[in-house]
């Protein structure tokens, strides 16, 4: 893979948490890249490490027990891992912005919308105060808030969930970032409002020309938005490909099971397929072998002994499963 063109490249990222004196890895050996103007969806169930991965990129991990142990996060070729807070502040909100799941907790309840909007621009530009307020208002209009002049004087609790998420998006795009990380941006919203917000993100992405990394558990949202999809399970990338191949030619047993376990509107199905068991917790993660083995319908004895690798089965389609030769450690070294 040529990495010249990648906007963001994550290489062998390991993020761990100290729990009772031991380090447990919530993200273990994650590698993938995001190209400019591309929408990459990271999909997985709760506890699969998708949020920890995004917090690692922004370096927003809880300081007291979370840390990046290994790996590189290259943004335009520059590694973010060794940067300190001051250097990160230059990047956060300016080159990479993030929107969160719960817009109520992400906004400060005691400050007006206008104050919080202006703050971003004050930190990253040298514009005058009046210009900044004008810019804030025009940003709010850009995200479809018609009463922008009044809204800047209001507080977050006066807005509905959908409106708050719009404000968050307006703040995130204030400095025309090259990458927007959206962590479950529509999970807390109703379907009709979700449709509004997804359309808005697509529109803004086009206008600003940014790449979007969308983290979600909803495969419907993935199909709607993604160019490429990264499927995560228990802290690892298990499959990565373009959206078409993920939905029509899924390779990993987990991806296949996940796709068949959602009820679909157009289908008549008496019984849904299920994945037995639950995602193992951080503490109970198997030390060696595939992390999906206990729930896998196609598990083989060697799955418990060998760590499968993320290998390319065909161009642009990687999978981490011993069913495929590319994932077998000895075969992979031969290929190299």
């Amino acid at each position: 893979m040529s990495n010249q063109e990648a906007l963001l490249e994550i290489k062998n990222l390991h993020t761990g948490f100290d729990i009772g004196g031991e380090t447990h890895h919530a993200v273990k050996d994650v590698s993938f890249s995001v190209k400019p103007r591309e929408v990459v969806c990271v999909v997985g169930e709760s506890g699969c490490g998708k949020s920890v991965m995004s917090l690692s990129i922004m370096k927003l991990l809880p300081k007291h027990n979370g840390k990046i142990d290994k790996g590189e996060i290259l943004f335009k070729g520059k590694d973010l891992v060794p940067l300190n807070d001051k250097e990160m502040n230059q990047i956060r909100g300016k080159d990479i912005s993030m929107i969160f799941q719960e817009p109520m907790t992400a906004l400060n309840p005691v400050l007006t919308i206008g104050f919080q909007m202006d703050e971003v621009l004050i930190n990253h530009t040298n514009a005058k105060k009046e210009e900044i307020r004008q810019k804030s208002i025009s940003l709010l209009k850009q995200v479809g808030i018609s009463r922008a002049e009044q809204i800047v004087h209001e507080y977050p609790h006066q807005l509905s969930g959908g409106m708050r998420q719009r404000v968050m998006i307006a703040m995130a795009i204030a400095c025309q970032p090259q990458l927007l990380i959206a962590d479950e941006p529509t999970t807390a919203l109703d379907v009709t409002v979700q449709a509004q917000i997804l359309e808005l993100i697509t529109k803004i992405q086009d206008e600003v020309g940014m790449a979007v990394m969308l983290i979600t558990h909803d495969l419907g949202v993935v199909a709607e938005m993604a160019d490429r999809v990264v499927v995560m399970y228990a802290g690892q990338v298990v499959e990565e490909s373009d959206v078409d191949r993920i939905f029509y030619d899924p390779k990993h047993p987990y991806t296949r099971a996940l796709l068949s376990s959602i009820p679909r509107m157009e289908e008549e199905k008496e019984v849904l397929n299920t994945i037995k068991g639950i995602v193992p917790s951080l503490k109970n993660m198997p030390e060696v072998g595939c992390r999906f083995v206990d729930r896998c319908p196609e598990a083989m004895p060697e799955c418990r002994k060998i760590d499968p690798l993320l290998g390319e089965t065909e161009k642009g389609h990687s999978v981490r499963c011993l069913l495929y030769d590319a994932s077998k450690p000895e075969k992979k070294s031969e290929v190299r």
Partner: peptide, 20 residues
């Protein structure tokens, strides 16, 4: 129409409601 369908080849026309 607002429910995102888990099928990338079937992007139906959405009716987007305005407001809350």
């Amino acid at each position: 129409s607002a429910i995102p369908q888990p099928d990338p080849r079937n992007k139906s026309e959405r009716i987007i409601l305005s407001g809350d």
